[in-house]
Design a protein around this nucleic acid. Structure first.
Lengths: 223, 223
DNA sequence: GGAAAATATTGTGCATGCAATTTTGAGATC
DNA sequence: GATCTCAAAATTGCATGCACAATATTTTCC
């Protein structure tokens, strides 16, 4: 596996995080240090350090003297997370409208144009990848690494709950038209519109999730 | 020393964080694990775990195999942090305008009224404490623990750079009038105005800091 | 038979030690 | 005098072991 430059602790943190995100480790699972150490072929020390790191991201819960468990997110907490991410994404879009360089604006436009073809071909796979890239451009475009980091971390944390995002019919075209609204606002340097458009866009994703995941208990707050 | 319920690792993380925030450990200081272990009378293991935790908050920098140092924030990074905090505070205000309960609104108004007296008495000490409380109410008022946490953490991280905040003459009254603008917007349920007013308010703090800390290299970005 | 107490077991918290890497310092060469 | 090379020292990464707290199990008592 090539150059082992990173420490075992970091590698472990990454692998365990991946296992949680892709669902191999289900919410509520007890994370026994001995077990993890055995599974990954190390001692408990790096496992412990990796767990501390994951605990700060909220992926796992660390109860002193009582071990770690994969965080169980209630649907209410999930809504909170989605709202927080929406606000952060919107803020990135806002700052992007104010701060993006001409080159960044051009790149954003080019990606948007390319995505139109994917919609036309109904290429969900390619569109999903491009979509991630599209959003990432706003993180960078905010020119605020602190904010960009927070947003990217939250997005990653919510990844497990966004799998079926583009499955619903017509959602690709809808998403793309929303992207267009955000793009126009950013290119026009209209911070408030960029904020509003992005917030609207990600709220749709949130709604899509709720319809897919919890079609029954759909109490919605007044908006 | 009462009930030692928390682990050594947690206690260490807290003490080291405090030492950094109050300036005992200056930016750039190397954090030797043996040294810290000796100073706090433990072994290296809990020290290492505490350092991992602090690294994720950004208070220290952890360079694999090369030890940890107290993060040196350049004035540019500091500006980034202030901007990020401003955006988060504004977002909390925005959500507060949408979500605060009548009780929370009343509490906010009462605090605001009380602070008028402190301004009249020119009681900087009391005003600073009340100011923190005022802002905290918006974190809670957002009804989004994720966002509230992020904002509170950032505020804490920036605490060392806000000491002289209310020293400048007339700043108390100015701050209070800004609070009034935020308050009115929130009570009126006007999300956009609450966002703008809070952003304006915290930008003033940022500017005050820059005038105090870096009166020379004051390149400002176009706003 | 069920609840409470006592015991056994498991697992975490922390200390210690060793190997490997980075850093430091001395000496050599240009 | 500066730079390069190489060895010594320092420091991190990780493994192992032990003590104590938390949990599971058995035993005792009503």
């Amino acid at each position: 596996m090539a150059d082992e430059r990173q420490t075992r602790t970091e590698k472990l943190a990454g692998e365990i995080a991946d296992a949680i995100i892709d669902g191999s480790l289900e919410p509520g699972t007890r994370l026994d240090e001995h077990m993890l150490a055995a599974r990954y072929g190390t001692s408990r020390t790096p496992v412990r350090e990796a767990l501390r790191k994951l605990a700060t991201t909220g992926l796992i819960e660390l109860r002193p003297r009582r071990g770690a468990i994969v965080t169980e997110v209630t649907s209410q907490q999930l809504e909170t997370l989605f709202v927080a991410m929406g606000e952060l994404e919107a803020t990135c879009a806002r700052l992007s409208a104010l701060s993006m360089t001409p080159i960044e604006r051009r790149r954003l436009g080019a990606l948007y144009d390319g995505m139109a073809d994917m919609v036309a071909r109904d290429d969900v796979e390619a569109y999903a990848a491009a979509n991630t890239h599209f959003h990432t451009l706003f993180y960078a475009g905010s020119h605020n690494p602190v904010l960009a980091d927070m947003t990217a971390t939250l997005r990653r944390r919510l990844a497990p709950f966004r799998h079926a995002q583009f499955r619903a019919p017509g959602r690709l075209a809808l998403s793309h038209s929303e992207h267009g609204a955000v793009l126009r606002a950013v290119l026009a340097g209209d911070a408030a519109s960029a904020h509003a458009a992005m917030l609207h866009h990600v709220s749709l994703v949130e709604d899509a999730f709720e319809q897919l995941a919890a079609p029954s208990s759909s109490r919605r707050r007044a908006n």
